[in-house]
Design a protein around this nucleic acid. Structure first.
Length: 211
DNA sequence: TTGCGGATGGACT
DNA sequence: GTCCATCCGCAAC
């Protein structure tokens, strides 16, 4: 697969714009000989000191220090005692903005993903932030890694499919919960907290109608 | 469709 | 020491 890695400039734009632009891009994670990749279909923006839901709202701690790093850094944190979430840090050093990558459509490494997730259902591999990190073997060791390196990065897809972008409220938070900082590909059955069977069914129906 | 256990680290008392 | 966090899976109803 020919991929063009996103450059530093991409990670220096506004956080909301980056969150929107990341839909349809490819998240790549290399672990030994295994290459995991997936099309990003769901993101959330966290706007640092302007956003009470953001980990960095109250300033820097040892846990969130990489959010204050340069744009293009990975911020991986552990939560609820049992899973990791992965963010792309956005902005110049000191600007603690980040985009949480919540869901992806698996492209390569699907067999090892199934093993990691202990399921054969491809819709259950990356359809949530905790699932995605488990499937792709992303953990705390990648916290602070550069997204311009080779272990984990984001790239342009080789064929850009049209995505139907929808902006919604964020999930799983209580503070500043009303703002529309979540972006999803509303036609994808791979986003979190949806009934993928329903989406597949309606797409089948549309197909049979049109031809 | 709702509800709770899981199992760890950081912030705060 | 206690509380709770950018959630997931499974068990009841």
């Amino acid at each position: 697969m020919i991929v063009t890695k996103l450059n530093e400039e991409f990670y220096l734009q506004s956080c909301l714009n980056a969150a929107k632009e990341l839909i349809g891009k490819v998240l790549v994670r290399k672990k030994g000989r295994k290459i995991y990749s997936g099309i990003i279909v769901e993101t959330e923006a966290y706007l640092g000191d302007k956003d009470a839901a953001s980990h960095s709202f109250k300033g820097m701690t040892k846990r969130n220090e990489h959010m204050f790093g340069a744009g293009g850094t990975a911020y991986v944190y552990f939560t609820y005692g049992n899973h990791y979430c992965v963010n792309a840090v956005i902005g110049k050093p000191g600007v603690a903005h980040a985009v949480l990558i919540r869901a992806a459509e698996p492209v390569t490494g699907i067999e090892p993903m199934k093993k990691n997730r202990r399921t054969e259902n491809i819709y259950e591999l990356c359809s949530g932030p905790g699932k995605l990190t488990q499937a792709m073997e992303i953990d705390g060791a990648l916290n602070g890694a550069s997204l311009l390196g080779n272990e984990i990065y984001i790239a342009e897809p080789d064929s850009a499919k049209k995505r139907k972008l929808v902006q919604t409220k964020r999930i799983g938070i209580t503070k500043n919960a009303d703002v529309l900082y979540r972006f999803i590909d509303s036609e994808s059955p791979f986003v979190s907290r949806v009934n993928y069977r329903k989406i597949l069914r309606s797409q089948q129906e549309n197909k049979s109608k049109s031809g």
